[in-house]
């Protein structure tokens, strides 16, 4: 699977969860690697791209989470 597709899935997962449950990086890695049957390192690499591009950011609220940046 292309990295960009993985990234798309990650973004959708985070989007769906916004306002309901904050996701941790490990939640995303576990969910996406199981859903797409790929390794967690693949998920990590795609997540890194998303964060480097600024599409997702890390936040801290008594624990670190991955979220969509505020407008």
């Amino acid at each position: 699977m292309e990295k960009a597709e993985v990234a798309q899935k990650i973004y959708e997962l985070v989007e769906k969860s916004t306002g309901k449950k904050k996701l941790k990086s490990s939640d995303i890695q576990k969910t996406i690697s199981a859903d797409l049957n790929i390794t967690r390192d693949d998920v990590k690499a795609a997540l890194k791209d998303l964060v480097d591009e600024g599409k997702l950011i890390y936040t801290y609220f008594g624990g670190s989470f991955v979220e969509i940046p505020p407008k």
């Binding site: 890194k48 950011i57 801290y60 670190s64 991955v66």
Partner: peptide, 15 residues
Amino acid sequence: GGIVGVRGYGSGVIG
């Protein structure tokens, strides 16, 4: 404040 940092990192800055 939990939403500041440098691009690509989730560490190193305390908002």
